[in-house]
Design a protein around this nucleic acid. Structure first.
Lengths: 105, 105
DNA sequence: CAAACACATAAGCACACACTTATGTGTTTA
DNA sequence: TAAACACATAAGTGTGTGCTTATGTGTTTG
């Protein structure tokens, strides 16, 4: 909800890594998220709390595990913010045409 | 340049306000940026330095003033990052296609 | 039901960060 | 050329942040 919370949550590289990992899977629990990363259990838990407070991820308890997944709408506010300041600039139009062209292929 | 620098630069609400102000104008000097904001001269200078290091703004000395303006490519890396993870991005892309189409007429 | 497990929370610590006041640097003006 | 001006930089300070260790909470398993 609060724009600032989302920006702050994304400002930490470890949290972005967690977010990216979640995005590449279809939901993971905190332990699964940890492996491959050098991060303690409390640190992971605290990072997930920040992401959850920013509504960037959702949690769902499943037995003694907690399944985390991306909140599809979580980035909406950032998308809108970034779009305001990156897309609608005349000097960028040609670059954008090229980008869209590449997306078509 | 460095993805992390950009995210960190945008994580501060005062810096986002400065960035937004610059985007709405066509270049402003540091003093012009200050008015309307409750911020000291050194604080403004330091914020501008962070934005400049993140390559989000460009500076150009003009006499004893320094003209600041948005770097149009500054947000590119964030745009790409966000586009990867937001389901709302396709809507933005479609809107953009439409805009470009209208520009062709 | 006791132990093991998955995770959250509390408290403390080191460092980063955003601000302040003071001063430095470069340019213009009177 | 001295003063005024626009801005940068230095140094110090309070607060925020990300980590650690320790412990708490809830669930499953033997």
């Amino acid at each position: 909800m609060m724009e600032n919370h989302i920006f702050k949550a994304l400002a930490d590289p470890t949290r972005r890594t967690i977010f990216e990992k979640l995005a590449s899977a279809d939901g993971m629990n905190a332990s699964a998220l940890r492996d491959g990363m050098t991060i303690s259990q409390p640190a992971m838990s605290q990072h997930l709390a920040v992401l959850r407070d920013a509504k960037l991820v959702q949690e769902e308890r499943q037995g003694r595990f907690v399944q985390y997944r991306i909140n599809p709408e979580g980035l909406d506010m950032i998308v809108q913010w970034v779009a305001r300041y990156s897309i609608f600039w005349p000097e960028r139009v040609n670059a954008l045409r090229q980008t869209l062209k590449e997306m078509d292929q």
